[in-house]
């Protein structure tokens, strides 16, 4: 199952050119996205009543926090050139465990949070371990595991939500740190910062990028590729669990249907944000900031369209178009840059 750019040829005959860092920035995904965000936000702010209202800014920001986290979860495994269809299922399972721990077992919030997050990481471990051991593409493995995780969760919970969570949880979801800013967004920003450091400065992060770009070369350079790929899946599980907890805080309850049937509703934001942000589907390159910007752009567009009274169902189709445009634009940009010998 080839992914985008898996074997993009570097056309011979194009001499390499030096590209200034300024040029690189201008042609980068992040810069283009930032400009787009500013333009759309400015247009909406000037033309739409209520777009800049404190409530609107607050809810957009909160949703950006959640979508970014879902996108980062998928990004962590796209690094390997693989994917994880079970992000939604892992997120919901972790959220349900979180709810059960507090409501049924009476575990305090501050203990339940790390337990639920670790649980997400361990589900990720199951995925990663199976993928590495079987040598089968992560698509089919996580397709199976999404069904299993979600099925077991529904079976155990009888599809009932946990509504009696401690009041702090909901309060956290409704809190405003600064006027108009949700702590959920701040958590996401903090996680983004941590991931930037992780991919840039940590051994494991660099090994993930190396194993994702060229697993054989990485293995032959002394990297234990198998373990690294398992670690990628664990990171995905961990971030998916955080996203699940964030959704729980927003709704004030752990609901089995919060990510749709089998958790499939998360798939679109999970891929859209990283792809918009310039993460390569073939692996080996990530953009944490791009993912944040991607989620920001989606949410600004969505809110604007909702204010323009575009039906929420049509927005689904619109988001699908966005994904299509994002990958097509990315492909065009790559062809352009390659033909100029710039990458």
């Amino acid at each position: 199952m080839a992914h985008a750019g898996a074997d993009r040829p570097i056309p011979p005959g194009s001499a390499p050119r030096r590209m200034s860092s300024g040029m690189r920035l201008l042609l980068g995904n992040e810069f283009g996205l930032a400009v787009l965000i500013l333009l759309t936000a400015a247009t909406f702010a000037l033309t739409l009543d209520g777009f800049t209202s404190p409530f609107s800014v607050y809810t957009i920001g909160r949703q950006i926090g959640i979508d970014t986290m879902i996108g980062l979860a998928m990004m962590a495994v796209i690094v390997t050139g693989g994917l994880d269809l079970s992000v939604g299922a892992i997120g919901v399972c972790s959220a349900m465990l979180f709810g059960w721990l507090m409501q049924v077992m009476g575990v305090p919030v501050l203990v339940a949070v790390p337990l639920a997050v670790l649980f997400g990481a361990s589900l990720g471990f199951v995925n990663g371990f199976t993928v590495v051991m079987s040598g089968v593409h992560s698509f089919i493995i996580t397709l199976a595991s999404m069904s299993i995780f979600f099925g077991v969760m529904i079976f155990l919970t009888k599809a009932a939500a946990f509504n009696g969570l401690p009041p702090q949880v909901q309060a956290f979801g409704k809190m405003r740190v600064l006027p108009g800013i949700s702590p959920l967004l701040l958590i996401t920003v903090a996680v983004c910062a941590a991931l930037v450091v992780f991919y840039r400065y940590s051994t494991l992060g660099r090994q993930m990028l190396a194993a994702g770009a060229n697993a054989r070369a990485a293995e032959l350079s002394g990297i234990r590729t198998g373990r690294v790929i398992v670690a990628c899946h664990m990171l995905t599980g961990l971030l998916a669990a955080i996203a699940g907890l964030m959704v729980t805080a927003r709704t004030g309850a752990a609901v089995p249907s919060m990510a749709g049937q089998l958790g499939q509703d998360w798939l679109l934001p999970a891929f859209l944000a990283p792809v918009l942000g310039g993460t390569l589907l073939s692996g080996g390159r990530v953009s944490v900031i791009g993912t944040l910007l991607g989620a920001t752009f989606i949410n600004i567009m969505t809110s604007g369209l909702l204010l323009m009274r575009v039906g929420e169902f049509w927005i689904l189709a619109f988001l699908g178009m966005m994904l299509l445009i994002a990958v097509l634009a990315d492909r065009t940009r790559q062809i352009f840059l390659t033909s100029r010998g710039m990458i």
């Binding site: 199952m1 080839a2 798939l267 679109l268 891929f271 589907l281 178009m321 994904l323």
Partner: peptide, 17 residues
């Protein structure tokens, strides 16, 4: 030659929408 996964994921969303 973009991966069928991502194109049909977009298609899924568009047709469903």
């Amino acid at each position: 030659m973009i991966s069928a996964f991502i194109i049909t994921l977009a298609g899924l969303q568009i047709f469903k929408g």
